[in-house]
Structures are given as C-alpha cells and as structure tokens.
C-alpha cells in the first residue's frame, strides 16, 4: 500500500497545466478550423490596413499614408489579440456546456481560480502565436512606419492590459451561468461594444460624448493609446505611464471582481440547477 500526499499548491499547479494542455489538444484536433480562422483574421487585418492605403485617394487630401496604415494595423492586430483573450475567457462556461463536460470539470476538487488561470494562460499563449503569425504575413505586404518604435514599451502595455482584460472576460464568463439561454449572447454584445468605443480604428475623441465616457472604462482604450504611442511615436515607459496606471488599476479591480462574480454566479447556478442546462 502506498500513499503519496501532494501539497495543495502542487495539485493546483498540475491542474493548471491540465487546462492548458487540454486546450492545446483541442486546438490540434480543430486544426483546420484554426487555420480557417487565422486566414480570416489575417485577411480582415489586411483589409483594414488597405483602407489606410486608399485614404488619400478617397478623401482627396494629402495625408501620411504610411503612418495611417500603421495606425490601423496596430488597431487590427491588438484587437485581434485582446478580443481573443476576452472570447476564450467569456466562453469558458458555454464551451464546456457544448462539449458536455461542464459537470465533470465543476465537480473536480481544484479551485475555480486554477480553472480560469489555466484558460487565461492558454489564451495568452495562443493569442501571442496568432498575432505573431499575422504580423509576419502582413509585414510581407506593407511597408510599415515603425522607425521610432519602442517595442519594449508596447509589450509592457500589452502585458498589463492582458491581465485586466482577462478579469473583464471572467466577469463576462459568468453570464452563461446566470442565463443559459441568453448569457453568451450578452457577452458577444459586450465584445462588440468594446470594439465600438475603444478607439480601435479611430481616435476616441471622434466618438459622441457619451461613448467617450464609456471608453474610459474599457481597458482596450488605454492599451491602444499606449501601444500606438510606443510604436508610432517611440514614447518611453515614463511617457506611457498615463496609459499604464489605468490598466494596472483595472487589472487590480477586474480580476478579483471577476473571480468574486464568478463565484456568486456558480453558487447561483448550483442553487437553481442551471449549471447543466443548455437553454
């Protein structure tokens, strides 16, 4: 007879790796769909960048086309990455419901933080790989104006934004627990609103005032502002602080808030029997 007792932290660590590995296996099995999606998002980013290439002809005025194209491409790439993080986290529940594994996962002894952390780590790794491939392909087609770029500054902003957006995604992930019928649809609306108000393809100041007000609460707004400053203007980390601190505050608020809300949502679903229900 042999008893091997593991410390709690090691059990949670093994489970975190389990979630990452499971998602990797799923990506492998759905490889053709992944490829289709990669082609779609790459073509989409190129289409948006071509809008910049044609802007001078369409508007009939002299503009810095190279800078405008880089501005648009940064928006397309960063949105592709951040929206993917948001989608992976927000679909945590509905995805497992669709596969039929939600009860097995939710009755396992590891913590929900571990579950969501595993999902988040995979989303970041997947997002980095996808964005790097997109950038590699797109750079073959366009001459981008990155002569002043501060890449380190851009990466710092992106990393901090990733944390706050994961928290945002966890808040959205609770929606399918509250309403199996409508929860996931609402999270798609949240994603669409982030796209609208966060200044992805235009400066936030062109939006109506009420949208500008809403944009203050989107981490994507600060991420894009900071990353564009770093890549287009070569802003130093000190100069990027105005974008970094709101992201840090949002991360500090959204991650615990997301975990707290998810815990309440899970308790509600277990009281009302909505964990299993698919609609």
């Amino acid at each position: 007879m042999q008893e091997r007792i593991k410390p709690r932290w090691l059990v949670e660590l093994v489970a975190t790796w389990g979630y990452v590995q499971r998602n990797y296996y799923l990506t492998k099995r759905y490889f053709m769909w992944e490829l289709v999606w990669l082609v779609y998002v790459t073509a989409n980013a190129m289409t948006i960048t071509f809008i910049g290439a044609g802007a001078q002809d369409v508007a009939g005025i002299q503009i810095n086309t190279g800078r405008y194209m880089t501005y648009l491409l940064i928006g397309a790439l960063i949105w592709s990455y951040l929206s993917m993080l948001f989608d992976v986290l927000s679909e945590t529940v509905s995805w497992e419901r669709w596969e039929g594994t939600i009860e097995y996962t939710f009755m396992s002894p590891t913590s929900r933080v571990t579950h969501l952390l595993g999902m988040g780590i995979y989303a970041v790794l997947y997002g980095i790989a996808q964005t790097a491939i997109m950038l590699g392909v797109i750079s073959l087609f366009f001459e981008l104006d990155l002569s002043h770029a501060n890449y380190l500054g851009a990466l710092v902003v992106l990393a901090i934004c990733s944390v706050s957006l994961l928290g945002f995604g966890i808040v959205a992930a609770v929606l399918p627990l509250l309403s199996p019928e409508k929860g996931q649809q609402v999270s798609y609306i949240v994603s669409a609103l982030l796209l609208l108000i966060s200044g992805i393809y235009y400066p936030v100041k062109v939006l109506p005032e009420w949208m500008q007000f809403m944009a203050q609460f989107s981490p994507v707004t600060y991420a894009l502002r900071g990353i564009r400053d770093a890549l287009l203007n070569g802003a130093s980390l000190r100069e990027l602080w105005g974008s970094i601190w709101p992201l840090m505050v949002m991360g500090a608020v959204f991650v615990p808030l997301g975990l707290g809300v998810f815990h309440l949502g899970e308790s509600y679903a277990k009281r009302t029997g909505k964990l299993k229900r698919s609609g």
Binding site: K6, L10, V11, E12, V14, A15, W17, G18, Q21, R22, Y25, L26, R29, Y30, E99, G100, T101, Y104, T105, S108, P109, T110
Partner: peptide, 19 residues
C-alpha cells in the same frame, strides 16, 4: 468527454484535475 480528444487525452486531462 471532449469528443474530438482521444480517450488517452481525456483520461490524462481528467487525472490532472485531481492533481
């Protein structure tokens, strides 16, 4: 089960959830 994953992958995943 995750229908697209193999039996072995599902078993390894299930085991990891329990450490």
């Amino acid at each position: 089960f995750f229908k697209k994953l193999s039996a072995m992958e599902n078993l390894l995943y299930g085991a990891k959830l329990y450490g």
